[in-house]
Design a protein around this nucleic acid. Structure first.
Lengths: 203, 203
DNA sequence: CTATTTTTCTACTGAACGGTATAATTTATT
DNA sequence: AATAAATTATACCGTTCAGTAGAAAAATAG
C-alpha cells in the first residue's frame, strides 16, 4: 500500500462530479470551492489531488471525452453500412443530449466557445478533441468508400466535417432546448447530404 | 438640451466596445472594469449609463443582434430564388465569421452556451434570438414554397431549424478555426438537403 | 514504539470582483 | 448669480476568488 495517509475519496468519482459542475455552469462560473463541495471534500484536498483550477479542468475534460465521447463513437461499431453507422453515431449523440439526468448540451462544445484564448494548453486540447471526432468519422467514411458504399469521388473530409458540424449544431440547440424530436429532425435532414451517383446541382 | 452635465462619451460607441469585449472573452471572464477600460471611461460612468453588469450585457447583446444579425438577414433581400436567398444568407454568415477584424465566433452562440441558467431574462433573450432567426428563415422558405420553388410537401420548419443549425455549427467551428474555405464547404454540404420531387430514401 | 509520509481540515492571504458613497464639475433653468 | 440636475473621478465597501501555510490525523516502515 502507499506510504502515507490514504486518500478518503475516489479520484475518478471526484472527477465525475467535477465534469458535472463544469458542464452545468461553465469554467469561469465554477469556483474551485463549488467543485470541492460537489465532491464533498475540502479545497486543499482537491488541490492536492488535481493541482490548480486549470489542471483540474483539463482532467475533467479528458474524463468527459473518454466517457461521453467514447460512448457515441462506439455506437458506430456494429453497423456494416456507412450510412447506418453515421446515423447510429448521430442517434447516440441525440440520446445523450436529451438525457434529462445529464447537464444540458456538451461540455466540449461549451468549453470550445467559452475558453478560447484562456490558455494555450486548453485551446490545444479542445482543438484536438474536435480533430479527433473528425478523424474518427473520416476513417469510418473511408471504410465505407472502400467497400463501395459511397461514390469514389466523394469528398470524405467535407463529409466528416459536416457531420461534426451537425453534432456541434445539436449541442448548441440542446443547451437551450434538449427536445429529442427536434434533434432527430436535424439528424434526418443531415442524412440528405450523402453523395449520389449524379453530380450535385448548383444554386 | 438635457438638464445636468452632458455625457462625455457616445453610449452607442460605448456599447460597441462592450460587444467587442464580451464577444472576445465571454460574459464571466469580462469584468465591468474591463469594459470601462475598453470604452476609456470609469466604472461609475458605465454604471450610470447602463445599470449593472447584467443590464450592460443585455444591452450589448441587443446591439450585437441589431448590427450583425440584421446584416446577414438583409443578405437575403435581393434574391428572387429561395435557394439563392438562403445561400446568400449563409455566405454572409461565413463572411462575418471569417472577418479577421471581428472577434472569433458569434456572440449569440457563445452566450447561449455560456450563460444558460445565469438569469431568466438572459435565457429568455437568447432563446428569442434563435427563434427570431428561425422565424425569419421560415418566412423566406414559405415565400419560396408559395412561389413554387419548393415541393408543396416540404417541411419548412425542419428546413429553417436545419439552416439555423448550420449557422450554429459554423459559429462553433469559427471560434477555433475561422477559415472561410472550411466554412464554405459546410455551406455547400448543407445546400444538398433541399427537398426534391422524389421521396427521400431511408438508411 | 518511533519516524516518515501523505492526507485532512481550519484558517488565512492578497487580489479581483460587482457595486456605491461622495464630492467636484458642468450644464440648463430661474 | 443662485439653484437644481446630471456626469465625472476617487476612493471605498463587503464578498468571493484562486491558492496556501500549518498543524492534526492516519497510514506504512523500521
Amino acid at each position: 500500500m502507499a506510504r502515507g495517509r490514504p486518500r478518503e475519496f475516489d479520484p475518478e468519482k471526484a472527477l465525475d462530479r467535477a465534469v458535472e459542475t463544469f458542464w452545468q455552469r461553465g469554467y469561469c462560473a465554477t469556483s474551485v470551492n463549488d467543485v470541492a463541495k460537489a465532491i464533498s471534500i475540502t479545497k486543499p484536498s482537491l488541490y492536492g489531488a488535481f493541482g490548480n483550477k486549470e489542471q483540474l479542468f483539463l482532467s475533467a475534460l479528458d474524463r468527459y471525452i473518454a466517457k461521453f465521447g467514447g460512448c457515441v463513437l462506439r455506437a458506430m461499431a456494429g453497423k456494416a453500412d456507412v450510412h447506418a453507422a453515421i446515423r447510429a453515431y448521430l442517434d447516440a449523440v441525440v440520446e445523450q443530449l436529451s438525457d434529462p439526468t445529464l447537464p444540458a448540451g456538451c461540455l466540449r462544445v461549451n468549453s470550445t466557445l467559452e475558453c478560447r484564448g484562456f490558455s494555450d494548453v486548453i485551446d490545444r486540447k479542445l482543438i484536438e478533441y474536435q480533430a479527433g471526432f473528425e478523424q474518427a468519422l473520416y476513417e469510418r467514411l473511408r471504410q465505407g468508400l472502400i467497400q463501395g458504399q459511397l461514390p469514389v469521388e466523394s469528398d470524405l473530409l467535407a463529409l466528416a466535417r459536416f457531420f461534426v458540424g451537425i453534432v456541434n449544431a445539436m449541442a448548441v440547440r440542446a443547451r437551450i432546448n434538449p427536445d429529442p424530436s427536434v434533434l432527430h429532425q436535424l439528424v434526418d435532414m443531415s442524412m440528405r447530404v450523402w453523395p449520389n451517383q449524379e453530380s450535385a446541382s448548383t444554386w
